[in-house]
Computed example of a mutant assay.
Amino acid sequence: MIKTFAISGEYITLGQFLKEESIVSSGGQAKHYLEENPVQLNGETEARRGKKLRAGDQLVVAGMQYEFK
């Protein structure tokens, strides 16, 4: 199942997204989470919490697939 995530503005960072979805509770936790659990962004491994996620991107994290609108 693909979950849709609406971005308010031009983009959201990966760290902000992880906090928004309650996967982590802080930016520091996001850094450690991504070191131990790299995610797939548009089919590529991504571990930078500052990576900008934009409309049309697809992300796989914690066993869930997200599409950004």
Rank of each mutant, 00 (worst) to 15 (best):
T13P: 05
L18N: 02
S8M: 13
K51Y: 02
R54S: 06
E20S: 13
Q58L: 03
M1H: 15
I2G: 10
E35A: 10
G56E: 05
Q29Y: 12
N37T: 13
K19N: 11
R48D: 05
N42G: 00
A47R: 07
K69G: 10
I23C: 08
E10Y: 08
P38M: 02
Y11N: 08
Q29L: 15
V24Q: 08
S22M: 14
T45P: 03
G28Q: 05
S22A: 14
G50A: 11
K69L: 01
G27V: 00
L14N: 03
R48H: 09
A62Y: 11
L53A: 02
Y66H: 01
R49Y: 02
Q58S: 06
M1W: 10
M64Y: 13
A30G: 11
S22V: 11
G9F: 10
V39Y: 00
L59N: 00
G28P: 10
G15A: 13
G15Y: 02
F5M: 02
T45K: 13
G43W: 14
D57F: 01
G28H: 03
E67T: 11
G9W: 14
R48C: 09
Y33K: 08
Q29I: 05
V39S: 00
Q65P: 12
S22D: 15
E10G: 01
G9Y: 12
L41E: 01
L53V: 06
V60Q: 12
T13R: 04
E46M: 08
A47N: 12
L18M: 12
L59K: 01
A47C: 10
F5A: 04
L18A: 09
L41K: 08
K51I: 04
A55I: 11
G9I: 07
L18D: 07
E21F: 04
Q58P: 02
H32G: 06
A55M: 03
Y11Q: 09
G15K: 05
Y33M: 13
E67M: 02
K52F: 12
Q29G: 09
G27M: 01
S22F: 15
E36V: 09
N37S: 13
Q65A: 14
G50E: 05
E21A: 09
K52S: 03
E21R: 07
E44F: 06
T13K: 06
I23H: 04
G50H: 08
L18W: 04
N42R: 09
I7S: 10
E46N: 11
I23L: 15
A55C: 07
E36T: 07
V24G: 09
Y66K: 00
E46R: 14
Q16R: 11
I23N: 09
